[in-house]
Amino acid sequence: MRIHLLILILVANMVGSLQAQDSVMVRAEWQKGDSRRYTMVEEQLEYAGDTLVRKDTTRHIGMELTVADSLTDTFEISCFTVNLKLFDQLVGIKDPDMIMRLGQFSSLTYRYTTDGSGSFLASTTLTKSMRSSIAYSLMLASKIAPHESLVKPLSS
């Protein structure tokens, strides 16, 4: 009887071990000061049937995420972004005033919190200047007409 019980316990442990091998928990194991850098590229492709008629890199951003604070069940993250290239259309800009204003609004730092596992909770800094820069970027994006070369079919 004891042998049977021992076998049952061993089998249960093996099953538990195999299940653990097949699963994984994704959670933040961060320390204050931890930092990671990323690039973020956004591309838009447009097809008519099977033909590619438009290709545009709409955003190319450098990001640095830093754990600014680590509390019991919360992390505060500082996210610094640099717009490496907002739109392909901007490459053709010659206006020095426009280029200067673009430079002024090309980087942004914002902060937000996550719970202890790393799930997003809320934004913690939202200043007037940040609102202005975002509004400016959106306004600029809406005013720039697509470049001619971008609307020609790229493949046939």
Partner: peptide, 17 residues
């Protein structure tokens, strides 16, 4: 009602540096 079906593909990729 276009002669051809229009398809837009928006790709976003984050990559660690």
């Amino acid at each position: 009602q276009h002669p051809q079906v229009r398809r837009n593909v928006n790709s976003i990729r984050y990559e660690r540096v």
